[in-house]
Write a protein that binds this DNA or RNA. Sequence first.
DNA 1: CCTAAGCCCTGATTTCGATCAACCTTCAGC
DNA 2: GCTGAAGGTTGATCGAAATCAGGGCTTAGG
Lengths: 248, 248
Amino acid sequence: MTLRQDIHSSGIPVLCLSCEARHHGVCGALEPDHLAQLAKTSSRHNIEPGVELIGDAEAVDCYSNLLSGVVKLTKSLSDGRQQIVGLQFAPDFLGRPFKMKSAINAEAATAVSLCSFPRAAIERMMKESPEFVHRLLKQALNELDEAREWMVTLGRKTAPEKVASFLLMIARNIGSSVDPAARSACFELPMTRADISDFLGITNETVSRQLTSLRMDGVIRIENNRRVTVDSMSRLERRCGGRGATAL
Amino acid sequence: MTLRQDIHSSGIPVLCLSCEARHHGVCGALEPDHLAQLAKTSSRHNIEPGVELIGDAEAVDCYSNLLSGVVKLTKSLSDGRQQIVGLQFAPDFLGRPFKMKSAINAEAATAVSLCSFPRAAIERMMKESPEFVHRLLKQALNELDEAREWMVTLGRKTAPEKVASFLLMIARNIGSSVDPAARSACFELPMTRADISDFLGITNETVSRQLTSLRMDGVIRIENNRRVTVDSMSRLERRCGGRGATAL
DNA sequence: CCTAAGCCCTGATTTCGATCAACCTTCAGC
DNA sequence: GCTGAAGGTTGATCGAAATCAGGGCTTAGG
C-alpha cells in the first residue's frame, strides 16, 4: 500500500490529509503515529439512503466517522410508533463506546459516506490517547445538549413551532448561505415528510400542513418538495417559539 | 484538619471513605493521591428543595457530586413554558465541562446534599487522570441514553403511557423493594405534580387524572400525595406503551 | 404505453389533552 | 382560631392535532 510510505514522509496518512474529520472530528485529537495506526485498519464506504447502519460489515459496530450525508438515529416502540432521537452530520463520530445493546437504530437518511474502524482499533485508541477520549466526551456532551434542546421542542412546542424549529436546525447544520451573517439560507431537506414527523413527534399530515402554511406566509420557498429557501432567518426564528432564554 | 493525617495513614481521605461516589460515581476513577488532592478543596452542602443550583458559592460552577436527593435540570422558553430535560440521582456528577453558557437550570427537587469542587480542581483532574475523563464520558453517554429514551416518551407516547413510564423510571431509580426481582416497589415521589407535568410535556391536571386512573385500576396506591406503592411492576410496565423493542 | 408504488398535499371528522373553573386539604403565619 | 397560599383533584368545555379519506405527481418497471 501507498499508506506506509506516506506515513514515513509526512507523518500523516494520505487518506487523512484531506479529511474533514482531521480538523473538526475526533481524528483531530490524534498524533500522526496514532492516526497512522488507525488509518491502516480504516475503510471507506458509500451508503445509499434508507440503508440500516448496523452490526456486520456494513458500517457501525465498527465505529465510523461520518464524512458526508446525514444519519438518523431512531427508537421504536413495539407497536410501530417511531421517534428519531438524533441526527448526525459530518464530521460526527458514529458508534457507541461501552456497549452493544443500545436499542437505537442508525439509518442513512441521505447518501452517506463513512470512514470505518474496527471496534478493537478504537478501543485501543481510547486506552492510548487521553486526548481522543476527551474529544469523544466533547461530542457526547454536544449531542446531549442537542437532545435536551429537542426535548423542549417535543414537550413544549406547538406543531407550527416544531416545524419552524426543525427547519432552523437543518439550515444551521447544512444550509449554504452566501451571507456571512446568515440572513438567508438554502438547503436540501435530508429527509422525507414522514421522517420529519418522526423527528418532531407529530404526523406527516401535520408536517405537510405546516410547511404549506410557512410557504403561504412567505417564510420559506420550496422547490421539488426538497429544496428549501429561507429568505429571512430571523423571520423563521420568530416562528420557533420563545427562544430558550432562561436568563435576561 | 484531620484530613492530612488520614491521607498519610490509609491513603484515602476520611471524608471519602464512606462516600458512595467513590464506588459508583466519578471518584471511583481516581487514585488515592488524586482523591486526596480533590478532597482538600471539596466542601459539602445541604440544599433545600426548590433552591436553584447555579453560579456563585451555592453549588454548581463548582462541579459537584450528588450525594443524596434529586436534582432537576430544566430549560424554559421565554414565554414561560418549561421542560425538565434531565433528572439526576446520587451519585451523579453535576456540572458542565467545557462551557458556561449551558442555558440549563439546575434545581434541587428534593432536599439535596452535594460534595462540591472548584472548577479549577476538576479541570486539573481531567488533565491528569485519563481514567477520570473516561468516567465522565461514561456518565455523559448514560445521560444521552436517558435523554433519548425520554424523547420517545415525549414524542410518541400518550398521556397515560407517559405517566406510567415516569413512575416506572422513578421506581427503578429510587424505589425500595424487598423483592430482589423487583416485582413490587415503594417510593416517595421526588417532585410535585407540576414538576411531573413539566417533565412529561403535559399539564398538571392531566398528570393528576392519570394518577387517579392508575389508582382506580389498582396499579398503584398513593398516600399523602407523595408516597407511591406499586404492587406489580409488570402491571405498570404494561401501561408504558410498547417496550422499546427494536429487534425481535 | 400503462400500472403500481412512493411521497406529498388537502379536506372532513374525531379525539385527546389543554384550558377554564371550582373546590378540597394542608400548612404557615398572624 | 382565622386566613391565605400552595399543591392537588375533579368536572365542563374547547381546540389543536390525529385520524380517515381522497387525489395528484413522480418514478420505476412491465
